[in-house]
Design a protein around this nucleic acid. Structure first.
Length: 489
RNA sequence: GGCGCGUUCGUCUAGAGGCCCAGGACACCGCCCUCUCAAGGCGGAGAUCGCGGGUUCGAAUCCCGCACGCGCUACCA
């Protein structure tokens, strides 16, 4: 497989790209990079009615975010430009005409109404569906009349009515179809645009694509494509049909599954490298235990033999776990930089802007406590607030009351004022001693201090937190806590 | 309805005749660690390998049938 691998990702800009779409792009890209081949992006915008403005940008942005780069396609062009099908209309028309001349395709003037009727009738009588070839049998005279009337027409491909079409699928093995069961599909629409079938075959050939790796939903159309290749005298590429990704309801992933648009994951605080790692695991495994892998490792280990045949259900929980693993692997600086935009978005405006150096100190404290970058704001807010807000009763720990809490906080305050160092180790040593002198258990004493200093009952380790907050903030919060608890007595 | 593909713990998967009365991971439960929360460590529960027939000394792995699921069945991709 070493010679000339050329694969492509052919999105149609009809909506937000979701996990399933991009996963297909990912597999193609991995295959190309693994074999030192080329990865082409081609825009299949042949359905003028379903075009969604901005959809292509979203596709490219998704790829950018995941660092999936392409060698030819939009923005970079290449030897087979243009890479946008709507700019290649003449090519398809020309080929369609050639097929008509050759007698393997023909114009069809059937109206949508008639086609609908035909389908209804087929359903009623429970026949197999498909075009009934009415226009294949038109006489020259009838055809001329229709043309003279200006009747709109499409071009249909005349499928062979006998024999079988077979493919050795790279993932599924041998598959074959009886030609008589396949109908005469449209290759050129009445608006002059090709259908998907003509479009892919033409461009995959012209762009010298060696391997077509696409989702399994395309498997049923493969015999049509193969017949087209044959009629056109093109050598077909190799085919591999990837398993489909499904939602929790076991239906093909689509918009109605909620947050499936790939870029939504960026907004929610997933790291692109984690998402990529997770996506490749939907339908591919390296071995019986390795799951967390760098992109480089994935590239060097990726192979079609490792691709699963059955469809996979997208499990968000595992993705989230994996995101946590990747977050924990970041350096403090990296984490802070990734966190910055999220804090800027999620923190109350009054607390902004966030000081990066301060954040670099905070980051390690929440690193093993967040699973999403978007968890950070809620978990760090008290670092930025002037004074934390909380219910005074929270200061009172089990087995204590307000009267015994006050002297404890007071003692801590006094000692911290004098403390020669504000390093966490020194703080811990000092405060443990203070707690003992007060006859309080660490749970009680530290619990109360935690609330006083952060306003929370669950936070990163107390002394590290104090160190990062700094003496000023800690002292102010403690004295405020003393006032507050005093009012409860 | 027709055609095609698929079927191993809830989920992602390992497994290509004996290593498997099935391994790993997420989630779940328990214990440990511990100033809280996490993270981490250890352990547990969880799959009669869709069902039924074969083939074989031996089958999750090969063959046949069935069931179920999914996909396709558009002048959508």
């Amino acid at each position: 497989m070493a010679e000339n691998v050329r694969v492509r990702f052919a999105p149609s800009p009809t909506g937000e790209p979701h996990i399933g779409n991009i996963r297909t792009a990912l597999f193609n890209w991995l295959f190309a990079r693994r074999h030192g081949g080329e990865f082409v992006v081609r825009v299949e915008d042949t359905d003028q009615e379903r075009l969604v403005p901005g959809a292509l940008e979203a596709v490219l942005e998704s790829l950018d975010w995941l660092k999936i780069d392409w060698d030819e396609g939009p923005r970079v062009d290449g030897p087979h430009a243009p890479y946008v099908q709507s700019q290649r209309l003449d090519i398809y028309k020309d080929l369609a005409r050639k097929l008509v001349d050759k007698g393997v395709a023909y114009p069809c003037y059937c109206t949508r109404e008639r086609l609908d009727e035909m389908r209804k009738e087929q359903q009623r009588t429970r026949q197999g569906s498909g075009y009934d070839r009415r226009c294949l049998h038109l006489s020259d005279q009838e055809r001329r009349d229709l043309e003279a009337e200006g009747a709109p027409s499409v071009i249909r491909f005349a499928m062979p009515t006998s024999g079988v079409t077979e493919v050795e699928d790279l993932i599924r093995g041998h598959v074959e179809w009886r030609n008589e069961l396949l109908d005469d599909f449209v290759i050129l629409k009445s608006d002059g645009f090709p259908t998907y079938h003509l479009g892919v075959v033409t461009d995959d050939h012209l762009m010298e694509i060696s391997h077509v790796l696409r989702a399994e939903e395309w498997l049923p159309s493969t015999p049509r494509h193969l017949q087209l290749y044959q009629a056109l005298d093109f050598e077909p590429p190799k085919f591999g049909h990837l398993p489909i990704i499904m939602g929790p309801d076991r239906a093909k992933l689509s918009k109605r599954h909620g947050a499936t648009a790939l870029l939504d994951y960026r907004e929610e605080g997933y790291l692109p490298e984690a998402l990529l790692n997770f996506m490749v695991l939907l339908g591919w495994a390296l071995d019986d235990k390795t799951e967390v892998m760098s992109t480089d490792t994935i590239i060097s280990e990726f192979s079609l033999e490792g691709v699963t045949k059955s469809s996979a259900i997208f499990d968000r929980e595992k993705l989230t776990w994996m995101n946590g693993v990747y977050i924990r692997d970041l350096s403090a600086e990296e984490l802070a930089d990734r966190l910055l935009p999220f804090l800027g978005r999620d923190l109350p405006p009054g607390l902004l802007p966030v000081d990066r150096d301060y954040l670099v100190n905070i980051a390690p404290l929440i690193q093993e406590r967040i699973k999403l970058l978007s968890d950070a704001a809620g978990m760090t807010q008290y670092f930025f607030e002037d004074l934390p807000v909380y219910d005074p009763n929270m200061l009172v720990q089990r087995g204590m009351d307000a009267a015994s809490t006050h002297p404890a906080l007071q003692a801590a305050l006094e000692h911290l004022k004098e403390s020669p160092s504000f390093g966490h180790e020194h703080l811990e040593q000092t405060l443990r001693e203070v707690g003992q002198e007060l006859g309080l258990g660490p749970r009680q004493f530290f619990g109360s201090l935690r609330v006083a200093v952060t306003g929370r009952t669950a936070t990163p380790p107390l002394f590290e937190t104090m160190e990062v907050l700094g003496r000023d903030r800690v002292l102010r919060r403690l004295s405020r806590a003393c006032e507050v608890i005093n009012q409860l007595i």
